[in-house]
Design a protein around this nucleic acid. Structure first.
Lengths: 122, 122, 122, 122
DNA sequence: GTGGTCTAGACCACA
DNA sequence: GTGGTCTAGACCACA
């Protein structure tokens, strides 16, 4: 699924870091999910394993994954990631509330919508 | 009728946008009513036409007025617009709820955020 | 790199918006990349800063960049934004389909409209 | 359900005309639906029947309703109303297609969404 | 330094 | 007449 863009001026390992970050933050890769092994991913992308290794190191430094010796890499789920996402969500909610206010929708109506929506999923 | 408050910390164009929104939402300015021309309103309020222009642009982007080239601006507000906006807001909320679910945020947390946000304005 | 085409009938600010959109969507400008400052870009293109400012405003409204006061503009584009936009578009389509149904328009008619519209640009 | 706004500077009959227009265009009042009788509506709104009569006359002139002697008024469904609505829908679709293009969504993806959505209702 | 707002005034297309 | 775009340049808050 990962596609390396050779037109991209950024180094390959940075592209890989970026893509995994997005997959993790968006929830496509859930917490504790096993990461592809360095060798497998290197083969799949026809890339030198050292480059993958470098990408994984950065991801670990940034707190997106953790590695267990002899077992491999796993998606981390630390609070700062969650906090980041929460702030993003709070920001979007603020924007929506402003739009709702424009057309005279009350907070109660918004909350009612959420409760109805939530019901679908539950 | 429009009064600019120079003590107000908000920019002039924002005050104008706000006042027209209220006039339109309250029905004082009915749909298809002609808006004052940019130049006339600028003279009346002793404000630069560019500032009025900016306010009208915002009103158009928000869907409160529409402009006809060479003719002027007109009130666009109507019930179907409100309904349309509401469905749009519902769509955005659905997207946010999905994101929130990804990181394990409950509906209650979202609602709490909304109630806190709402408090800012009240 | 940006070249303004004075033969182009479109306004300058629109050309600028368009070019940055493409750079961002294609990934040439990665997320959080710093945008050129309003003044610098204005000088470089021999264009009035107000025109650049207008282009940046549009880019911000469309969600392609975000600005930090006193610091400058940054690329905001990322996958979750695209996903969010897609859900928003889906919400709007649902609303339109409901309206279309009210007047007895079939899905086929709607699709025909889209294919016709699309043709304009192609 | 109809509420007369006495603060509104417009004449009452015009407010009534306006509200019925919206109800009809939005599809709340479907074609051939029976309109409330002049006398009933007058009583309900505590308004002189002549005022209601005047409003109904305008609605008939505008093609929104038709009256059958001895039976009462009915919601019309002429082509021009439908055309009006269709143009509105076409306009909204154009706006959505522009947004979709911004994020690189193809016409095919839009059409797929419509077909999926349509399935819900069918 | 950065963007955000505003004035003053020109020129354009559209009607 | 109308709005839309653009230039030139000032002043502000924020960092």
């Amino acid at each position: 699924m990962l596609i390396i863009d050779y037109q991209d001026t950024r180094p390959i390992y940075e592209q890989i870091v970026d893509k995994f970050q997005k997959l993790i933050l968006s929830g496509v890769l859930p917490p504790h999910e096993r990461m592809p092994s360095v060798r497998n991913l290197a083969m799949e992308l026809s890339i030198n394993p050292n480059t993958i290794q470098k990408a994984y190191e950065r991801l670990e430094q940034k707190g997106f994954i953790y590695t267990v010796k002899g077992k491999g890499g796993f998606v981390a789920f630390n609070e700062s990631l969650v906090e980041h996402k929460k702030e993003e969500i709070a920001g979007k909610l603020t924007a929506i509330l402003a739009e709702a206010e424009d057309i005279g929708m009350s907070r109660e109506e918004i909350i009612a919508l959420i409760e109805k929506e939530g019901g679908k999923k539950a």
